[in-house]
Each structure stands twice: as C-alpha cells, then as structure tokens.
Write a protein that binds this DNA or RNA. Structure first.
Length: 570
RNA sequence: UGGGGCGUGGCCAAGCGGCAAGGCACGGGAUUUUGGUUCCCGCACUCGCAGGUUCGAAUCCUGCCGCCCCAGCCA
C-alpha cells in the first residue's frame, strides 16, 4: 500500500522554509530536528495526529531527527495514564522517536539554574503580588499595565527568595518568579510574564522533589533550545508568544550558552478542524463523561484511539493530512476527504466478503433439495494475487431487504416480481412470489434459478443489470456489526452558539446489528483485519471486542452509493 | 479605541509581477458479475472590497471591510 515513507516531496510553507534554511546554511552543520510536545493531560485527536505526522515527516525528509517530549510542567493536570496512551497513539501512527523520549521535567534542574542566571542578570524577579493583583497590574487589552512594586528588588533578595521558594518555605500561590520585560507592551505576553509558580503538588515523575514549576512560556523555548530543536512548530495561537519565545532563547544563549544546543525558532501553523465533529478537549471530555459515546476510543470520536478502533489505518491518516496541507489560515477539512483516503486504501487492499445487514429470506424453489454448491469468487477484483475463495450456495439464502422492491421505479436494477438479478458469483434468479405476514410485511421471497447461468460459465446469453450479494442461510456465520455515522448532524457543531453542542448529536451515529449472517469464511478472519462487505462498506474486525462470543465488525466507512444519492434527489 | 494573525471556486490549497496547479465534493458520459472501482469530460474572465503603480497585478503600494486569537500563578 502507499505507505508514507517520509521521502516524498511536500509543498507547504514550512517545508519550503526549512529547505531554504538548509540552502542558506542557517543550521550550520546541524541537522533538522523537530519534536512533538504533548501535555499528558488527555487523549490525542486527529489534530495532534496532523502535528505528529508533520513533525515526523519533516525530520525524515531532511534526514533529521524527531523527538517526543512531554510538556509536563503542570502536575495538577497531568498523569502517567496519559503518557502511556499518548505513546501508544504516536507509535501506532508510525512516528519513531528512537531513543529520544524526553520529559520537560527531565530538565527542571537546568531550568532552575537558568532562572538563577536570569535573576543574576537582573532580568527576573520574585513578585509577591496575589494572583488577582497581578491580573490588575497587567492592565487590559487597550491600556498598559503598571509595574509591580516588587519589580526592583535587589538581586540578592530575589536570589534568596527564589531559593526559599524552591525549598518549600512559601505557600502555594504566594509568590512567583517573573521576567522583567515591559509592562507597557501591546503584547500582553511581554508584560512581565510569570516564569515559575509555587505548587505543592506531587508530580507524576518527579514526585515531591519540586514545589516550584516552570510555566510553558519559560519552559518550552528553553527545552527546545536545550534539546537542539531547530524548528519548533506549534499552532497559530502561539504567534503572540513568539517574541517571548525568542526572549527566552536569546537569554539562554547569552547567559547559559553551555545549556543550549541550538537557537531554535518557532513557526506556527493553523489547527485542523473537521466537519461534523468537535475537537476541543472540553467538548470531547463532555461526550465521554456524559456518555454520549462509550469512551475516548469510541469509534465515533476524532481521537487517534477512536479512529484506530473504527478501523482507519495510519497510512490513510497520513494521506489525509498530506492532502489537507498546511497553512496559516483557519480551516475546516471535509470529513469526506478522510473517507476518501481510507476508501482508496481499502479498495485495493481489503478482501471482499459477503454479509447481509438487513436480511430477508429467499427460497429458491427449483434448487435440488439438500444440495450445497461451492461457488468461486475473487477476494479482490482486479488483483489476481489476492486469489479466490469458495462460498457455499444452497436453496435458502438471505439477501438485503433493500435489494427487493415490490413496485420498483424504472431504473431499479435489483430484484422485483418477475424480474431477474444475478447473485454475485452464483446464478441468476427470478422472483416468482412474495410471501407476506398478516400485517402485510414481506417475510420471504420465492424465486427460481436458471441453471444455465452459473457465474463464469453462463450459456444462457442473459444480460442482467443487477448483481447482488447473498449468504446461504444454512452455512451462515453470525456476527455483530456496528454501523457508524457522523456524530453530529450539522457541519460545524462548534459554531452553534445558542444551543448546547450536544443538541446536534446524531441519534443514528451508531446502529448496532446484533445478528448478521455472513459467509462462513468470516470465522477465519483475524481480529484487527479489514474487509469489504460486498456493496456495503469497509469493516474492521474489532480486536478490542474479541472476547465477546460473536465477532464484532465496525464499519469504517460505507461504499459510495450513487443509487441512494439519485434516489434522494428524486 | 491595544497587539497579533488570516482572507484564492462548496471544502482544503498551490501561486510571490506575465495573464488562476492539484485534491476532495459536485455534474455529465463510458466500462463494470460490487448502482463500488477505473476511465474520460465539465466545474473561479477571477483571487474580500476600492483606488493606485505598471505594457502587464491574485501577486507591489494605499485605504477600507470581514473573520480568528490574546487580559491563566493552563499548555
């Protein structure tokens, strides 16, 4: 399959920028070095997948390196559980950090030293203002802030106080370390940003060793420079933070050069939105907590874990990301593009199987009693190497209810009274009789088959337009099938401001079919494998549900259906 | 009323002064034992708007308009 090896050419502005840096020799003898910096406080979604793939592929293309670094500077929100799930997701996507798994907390000691040097240089100070006071002093969007009364503390006092902050002499929230920059800046991030806060909280890795923790704006640029990251990619809302990023890196370079491997630079790109889904962590959490879905890995979720369980492949997600592209403009990618990517891959790689999702019984009246015939059919049409398989055919079969119409419109090519249709790989049958129950529901079809029309050896000269799938009742294997559809009924559920977004949840987003007849070959399938259920869509044998008595298949995506579309229009 | 970012077809997105790539979606046709796939063909006289510079502008200049982000001791 078209697996992304990372060697193809990219055509986005970040790729161009790096190429130019290389040509101009900006990197010296250093190789391109990127990183993915998740905070271990939740599950990764398709937007993160985009960042992971971008960073990883960029490193690959330029023969550089890719780090995984957890941004674990806030012990209140972070947990080991998320570290594990994030690593699993990234590994699954195929992004390999080799031996470069880092944690921001690995560098707490060096960062502390850097803070000391900032204080020595008179560029950072301990501030005793309360949280509310700091906010007041910061000013507003349109008015400048005013300087903290502690701003001009002497170096020795700052040093002493900061050391005692580390020792745990002060309460949580009582003091902070701030950078001394510019309280009048139009950019609020430059109004003496907080560098360290006191948090008497156990950290998932450093335990109780620290009670002061660095802020993102201090930590991130330094960690990048310290690891030798050349290109620090992040999302667009950090654009405002870039001057501060540069301030930190420049100061590190000046005051603590031995701790800096490279003068890293930040480049921002737009986050990804998807139609018919929500992406904010808060909303995803609500979906899980309020049980609108079954968990973070529910196949309807845009999480990496959810897509994995739905049956998407890493290659299809990488393909999707590549096709969407990268830019700085706000954008919402069409879900149809993601569907296109997985269909394209599975069309060529998924073996076909027959299963009837909405069965109706068909009795073939002229079939010899008790006879079973094995008919042969291709596993993947057009791919000789995929071979063929034998499917048992007999006198009682199931077909889709929707493949029969009692009173069909002119263009209906399937089964109808006195009309003929081909059973895929088997014979042409004609419908002779329609059996109904007391309420008038069709419960059975009586058909006759034409022995001359055996698939591949047809001597009848008949031409039928319709070919439908079927399953022999006597030989059927019974499976459970989950049919998934968009979680929301409107294109942009994020934008709905008057109504709670959960009001737009699609009540049909999951349709469970408990008892579905499938051709017997399905029992030989391995959990984790993917099939096309002929004419119905691509399905994934859910390994997470493998312990259940019956195999469970999740529909990744239905096949395109131009008949249904035409019907809808009329 | 401060600072930053963005505006190219329904959705993405190339383009960076020489006369609008590509993908998805959509519409039409051919092939087809999946109404799938594949294959043709069509789909922006126009680049948020208005001026200007130029032989020539989506690309340069000026002025508007619209949308997004920022006042966490979150990341």
């Amino acid at each position: 399959m078209a697996e992304k090896t990372g060697t193809e050419v990219m055509t986005n502005f970040i790729y161009s920028m790096i190429k130019e840096d290389l040509e101009k020799g900006v990197l010296g003898d250093k190789r391109v070095h990127t990183r993915f910096p998740p905070e271990p406080n939740g599950y990764l979604h398709i937007g993160h997948a985009r960042a992971i793939i971008l960073n990883y592929r960029l490193a690959k293309i330029f023969n550089g390196k890719f780090n995984l670094r957890f941004d674990d500077t806030n012990p209140i929100k972070e947990e080991q559980e998320f570290v594990d799930s994030i690593m699993e997701d990234i590994r699954w996507l195929g992004a390999d950090w080799e031996d470069r798994l880092f944690f921001s907390s690995d560098y707490f000691e060096v960062k502390y030293e850097f803070a000391i040097r900032l204080i020595h240089a008179g560029r950072a100070y301990v501030c005793d203002l309360s949280q509310e006071e700091i906010r007041e002093y910061r000013g507003t969007l349109t008015e400048p802030g005013k300087e903290s009364p502690y701003r001009n503390r002497i170096v020795d006092e700052n040093l002493d106080l900061f050391e005692r902050m580390r020792k745990g002499e002060f309460e949580t929230g009582s003091r902070v370390l701030r950078a001394k920059i510019d309280m009048a800046s139009g950019n609020l991030n430059m109004r003496d940003p907080v560098l360290y806060r006191i948090l008497h909280t156990t950290h998932h890795r450093t335990g109780d060793k620290w009670c002061i923790y660095p802020m993102y704006d201090f930590d991130h640029p330094f960690s990048d420079a310290h690891e030798g990251i050349t290109h620090s990619l992040c999302s667009i809302e950090y654009t405002d933070h870039r001057p501060l990023y540069d301030w930190i890196v420049d100061n590190a370079l000046e005051l603590y050069p031995e701790a800096v491997k490279f003068r890293s630079r930040q480049t921002e790109f737009a986050r990804l939105n998807l139609t018919y889904t929500v992406m904010s962590k808060r909303k995803l959490r609500r979906l899980v907590e309020e049980k609108f879905v079954e968990g973070w890995d529910d196949p309807r979720m845009p999480t990496i874990a959810g897509m994995r369980r739905r049956g998407f492949t890493p290659a299809s997600i990488a393909d999707f990301q590549e096709r969407v592209g990268v830019s700085r403009a706000d954008s919402t990618a069409d879900l149809a593009l993601r569907e296109h990517c997985i269909r394209q891959e599975l069309e060529a790689s998924a073996p076909r199987l027959m299963a009837v999702l909405d069965p109706i019984k068909v009795v073939i009246t002229n079939w010899p009693a008790g006879k079973t015939e094995l008919v042969e059919t291709e596993n993947i049409p057009g791919d000789e190497n995929a071979g063929t398989r034998k499917v048992p055919f007999s006198g009682v079969i199931y077909i889709e209810r929707g493949d029969f119409m009692e009173d069909p419109p002119k263009k209906f090519f399937r089964l109808a009274p006195a009309r003929e249709v081909r059973l895929k790989g088997a014979y042409i049958i004609q419908c002779d009789d329609v059996i109904k129950d007391a309420e008038g529901n069709i419960i059975e079809l009586r058909c006759s088959y034409d022995p001359r029309t055996k698939s591949g050896a047809d001597t009848s000269g008949k031409k039928v337009k319709g070919v439908i799938h079927w399953v022999s009742a006597e030989h059927a294997a019974w499976i459970k099938v989950n049919l998934y559809d968009n979680l929301f009924t409107i294109e942009n559920p994020e934008e709905e401001r008057d109504l709670d977004f959960t009001n737009n949840i699609n009540p049909q987003s999951l349709v469970v079919c408990e008892n579905i007849p499938a051709e017997p070959a399905v029992v030989e399938a391995t959990p984790g494998s993917r099939f096309q259920f002929l004419r119905k869509g691509y399905f994934y044998y859910d390994p997470a549900a493998a312990s259940v008595s019956k195999p469970v298949f999740n529909r990744v995506v239905p096949l395109k259906d131009s008949w249904a579309k035409a019907k809808q229009k009329s």
